[in-house]
């Protein structure tokens, strides 16, 4: 679509595309441009807002480019040790969850993909059941507590280590991309199951590994709820929880409060206004850095896994 004559300068003679094609091109370009704009604009807005004077932002004066350029917001973010700490914690949690989750999912997915696994359907059913029924918050909390994971990094990694959805996508990926013949060949050559998995399957599965890494990484990066209920030590809070505390505390309903101090609310609101956009930027940077590296695998891995399932 990029080099279509719909946008070629007048006077250059070419073989004409059919009229309907040209119209279609114009329509598509306009639609896609609008679509892109809806994605790019909020981002530009937030970047600009984080670099503007908060007054200009809250009065609506700033709508595209920064007004009253200042780095104060970023300076203020640095003044909050909780934010830096949360950022590092989140990196650690996401990094670990990404590795643990992917390892377990790829191994589990492969096992489930093998037709000769005894009780394959039963295992699959057990996994799928958890997509429909969950133990609920308090029972899950009790399990985590009794495993001694409260207030440890493990509470952030183990309870959500495997996503069933991703496990099924991974299983389907193996079923469709690793032909049974390959296993037979390897067996004839004397490879054990371990060796086959390690030397043949894994090298063929880069797309699905990349996709799993990314999805687990992003999910953990964005998660706050487990942190909220499992962590009591503020030094362990992930960035999202710190952000949530700062940004959501000022939302407040006058009919449901008992004599709250208006000055405290105003104060919390001002902190939130000052930090809001800079925080959003900071929290978005790691996923933004990660996406380009995984993108080329993304389409392949995700599509193969899901569509042909």
């Amino acid at each position: 679509m990029t080099a279509q004559p719909a946008v070629s300068p007048p006077g250059v003679r070419r073989i004409k595309d059919p009229r309907s094609d040209r119209i279609l091109n114009v329509v598509l370009i306009v639609l896609l441009a609008l679509f892109t704009l809806t994605i790019v604009y909020p981002f530009v807005y937030i970047v600009s807002a984080s670099l503007s004077d908060p007054t200009a932002v809250s009065s609506g004066e700033m709508w595209l480019w920064p007004v009253g350029f200042s780095m104060d917001a970023y300076q203020a973010v640095l003044d909050y040790p909780a934010i830096t700490r949360g950022f590092l914690n989140s990196l650690l949690y996401s990094g670990s969850a990404m590795l643990v989750g992917t390892a377990v999912t790829v191994m589990g997915g492969y096992a489930l993909s093998r037709a000769d696994l005894v009780g394959r359907n039963l295992f699959t059913l057990m996994f799928v059941l958890t997509m429909m029924f969950s133990g609920g918050m308090i029972p899950t909390y009790l399990v985590v507590k009794n495993l001694g994971m409260l207030n440890t990094i493990w509470a952030m990694i183990i309870p959500t280590a495997v996503s069933v959805w991703q496990l099924i996508v991974t299983r389907t990926f193996f079923q469709t991309t690793i032909p049974h013949e390959l296993l037979e060949c390897s067996r004839i050559d004397g490879a054990s199951d371990m060796r086959f998995f390690w030397r043949i399957v894994l090298p063929l599965s880069k797309p699905i590994i990349a996709v799993n890494l990314l999805l687990y990484g992003v999910a953990t990066w964005n998660a706050y709820f487990n942190g909220l209920i499992y962590l009591t030590d503020e030094d362990l809070y992930p960035l999202q929880l710190v952000m949530r505390n700062i940004l959501l505390e000022n939302t407040f309903d006058p009919s449901k409060m008992a004599n709250a101090d208006p000055e405290r609310i105003a104060q919390m609101q001002q902190i939130a206004d000052k930090l809001k956009y800079a925080l959003i930027i900071i929290a978005s940077v790691p996923p933004l850095i990660a996406y380009p590296f995984v993108q080329k695998h993304f389409v392949k891995g995700m599509m193969i896994g899901s569509l042909k399932g």
């Binding site: 918050m137 308090i138 996503s163 959805w165 998660a223 709820f225």
Partner: peptide, 16 residues
């Protein structure tokens, strides 16, 4: 940004 991942959002208990 603050979307909860599906796994991360347990439902309240309903058992008696």
């Amino acid at each position: 940004m603050t979307d909860r991942a599906p796994l991360d959002h347990p439902t309240p208990p309903t058992e008696p």
